[in-house]
Write a protein that binds this DNA or RNA. Structure first.
Ligand SMILES: [Mn+2]
Ligand SMILES: [Mn+2]
Ligand SMILES: [Zn+2]
Ligand SMILES: [Zn+2]
Lengths: 146, 146
DNA sequence: TCCTTATTTAGAATTATTCCAAATCTTGAC
DNA sequence: GTCAAGATTTGGAATAATTCTAAATAAGGA
């Protein structure tokens, strides 16, 4: 699930352009938040992003982290994921993928989809923006414990 | 999307048994909340269920509605759905189905799936409990307005 | 009926997110 | 580089959604 170093570099360089294309300015806070997402791809909540971001930028505020995450989602650099009651999670993997979620320990991982929404029914008049597919259950480790 | 009257009747009669099977007691509040879900299948939030339930049972409390909804989910009579930031929604349709969600007006509707999760990848060791599939976009009415 | 235990209730507490207004930063024009 | 305009950041207050608490009540079995 980890992309190669060259592609990741590219990701970072393109941040400014992508923000501009979405009508946003480049700021050090947005770079910091984006780097947090890229560095550990475990689908952190906004609060987890906040705590990680503070390590490199101790003055960053809670509100800013929400603002930055929203901006990243808006300009197509991250996805917001709603897997359960409670905090939303964030994911910088923009490939078509679905989420496997362990209801016992909360682990989340990406699985790239073999085919996209082609097999989905298309109700008349509905204009599809994106699919949100989650698989709930027990991860290998938690399944073994039972 | 509406089931026939006989099936709906059956639904209501079986409430007691299903609660018992899940280790819950039958209460008038649980019947009331379940009836709210059955009567208008528009995927209400807990707060919407609360307001509708109060019409027939003015003394019912907020906490009880949450308790009842949890019990119904636990014993397999309703699903909890997380479509967006904010309140969870509830659905008494226990057939395998996915949700089409209008990001403009918030409308939700069920579409029965042609095939279930057979095409989904099965990561080694992961024990699947259920699939949660949402399609985001614009409903026919909202798509026309743009 | 009586007892035990689950459930309900109102309100307080907690969690997650959004709003606010003042201070600061980014960008483009000069 | 300087400056102005507007976007962004900040800390804290406000709001929304849900969970917790402890006392009162109701359900179901003996
Ligand atoms: Mn992901
Ligand atoms: Mn549904
Ligand atoms: Zn697990
Ligand atoms: Zn709509």
């Amino acid at each position: 699930m980890r992309m190669n170093p060259a592609a990741e570099n590219n990701d970072r360089q393109q941040l400014g352009e992508r923000l501009n294309a979405g009508g946003f300015r480049f700021t050090s806070q947005r770079r910091c938040v984006y780097d947090v997402l890229l560095n550990k791809r475990d689908h952190p909540t906004a609060d987890e992003v906040f705590m990680r971001a503070k390590k490199g930028m101790p003055e960053i505020s809670h509100a800013t982290v929400y603002n930055c995450l929203d901006a990243l989602v808006e300009c197509g650099l991250a996805r917001q994921v709603h897997l359960q009651r409670g905090a939303a999670r964030f994911c910088p993997n923009m490939e078509e993928h679905c989420h496997y979620y362990c209801d016992a320990c909360g682990e989340v991982f990406d699985v790239t989809l073999p085919a996209d929404g082609a097999m989905m029914p298309k109700p008349r008049g509905f204009k599809v923006d994106h699919y949100d597919i989650a698989v709930h259950g027990l991860c290998a480790a938690c399944a073994k414990k039972k």
